[in-house]
């Protein structure tokens, strides 16, 4: 118990994060509204929701610059589909009209024609919009573009955290190797780099899938992607360097020197260079993109995100430990 409590903790944290990350439903939202253009007269609007529970008598209205248009009729087909019939007046002020169903807003739903000085506001207008969450319990934010892929936050991002942590361990072990050429620490450094590369690969794969779903391409020319590619190249070069030196002690020392040099430069590149040209990045928190902090109700994500990070990092350390021990056993058997 004394020595393996943290492994136990890694398993528990990862289980919690994976189950919660995959099972927790998204909060209800409107995902599709057609048509996308309205003109004066009677219009039929089809609304599609996600995880919603449309019901007869639900409160629905169109909003145009703080003026409200009430529907004539709302036909609820099922929990996620409804047809709204409304009489659109001429002379609305703003060119974009929003639609609100059950307190869920779909901003900029309609291009609006026949603009004018304003209209008389309908009487259905709003009690402050309040989302009905009863019976759903804990939910994740439902953001347009992201939708269900928001769950990848608990897998893609911790991969990079773990990789940096493992490369940091390799860096530390390499410094120790220079002090006195200790082959055990050399093995630990190599294992950390190998497992770190594995996490780098997983981070690239999860990132590519996510990028395809949200940005439309598997690979973009992005500062952070360049950083990831450079990291992979540096540590592959580290392994090549190790492979080219037969003498054990000389290999340990040269690899340690390269690793220290590479890690310091890498940290500079990953954390300083992106600051120089941050406009280039599509990642959240760069170039005017909204970050983690302004995701509405971000605390719901954080509750799962932090355990996920801790769990993955601990799992990575565990893998390094196992690899170091097997490497030691293999060397003893060879002798």
């Amino acid at each position: 118990m004394k020595h393996w409590w943290w492994k136990f903790m890694a398993v528990v944290l990862l289980l919690i994060a994976s189950i919660a990350g995959l099972r927790v439903p998204l909060s209800p939202a409107l995902v599709h509204v057609s048509p996308s253009r309205i003109m004066p007269g009677e219009v039929m609007i089809d609304v599609t929701g996600y995880n919603t529970r449309f019901a007869d008598g639900m409160r629905t209205y169109l909003v145009n610059d703080n003026q409200y248009v009430c529907p004539m009729r709302v036909d609820v087909m099922d929990a996620t589909h409804a047809r709204i019939v409304a009489e659109v007046p001429a002379g609305m002020r703003a060119s974009m009209t929003d639609i609100v169903v059950q307190g869920m807003t779909y901003p900029g739903a309609f291009f609006t024609e026949s603009l004018g000085e304003g209209i008389e506001s309908g009487s259905c207008a709003p009690t402050p919009p309040k989302l009905d969450l009863t019976g759903l319990g804990f939910t994740f934010p439902n953001r347009s573009i992201l939708y269900e892929s928001i769950r990848n936050l608990f897998f893609h991002v911790p991969m990079w955290f773990t990789m940096i942590a493992l490369m940091g361990i390799a860096f530390w072990q390499s410094i120790k190797v220079l002090g006195n050429t200790d082959l055990e620490r050399d093995r630990a450094a190599r294992s950390a780099v190998q497992v770190g590369l594995l996490f780098c690969g997983l981070g690239l794969v999860t990132g590519a899938v996510w990028a395809r779903a949200t940005w439309g391409a598997f690979w973009t020319n992005d500062v952070k992607l360049n950083g990831a590619a450079v990291t992979a190249l540096i540590y592959l070069a580290y392994l090549v360097l190790r492979g080219s030196i037969p003498d054990l002690y000389k290999r340990a020392r040269l690899a340690a020197i390269y690793n220290i040099f590479a890690f310091v430069l890498l940290v500079l590149f990953l954390f300083v260079v992106p600051r120089l040209n941050e406009i280039d990045s599509l990642h959240p928190g760069n170039g005017g993109n909204s970050g983690f902090n302004d995701l509405d109700l971000d605390n719901r994500l954080r509750i799962v995100f932090y355990p996920a990070v801790a769990g993955w990092v601990l799992l990575g350390i565990w893998m390094v430990d196992l690899r170091t021990r097997t490497a030691r056993l293999i060397e003893q058997m060879d002798r």
Binding site: N226, V230, A237, V240, Y258
Partner: peptide, 17 residues
């Protein structure tokens, strides 16, 4: 050969900047 493998990823970010 080894110099190119070791050096290229380290100068690449500098080259970009």
């Amino acid at each position: 050969g080894l110099m190119a493998i070791l050096g290229f990823p380290l100068v690449l970010p500098m080259l970009l900047a």
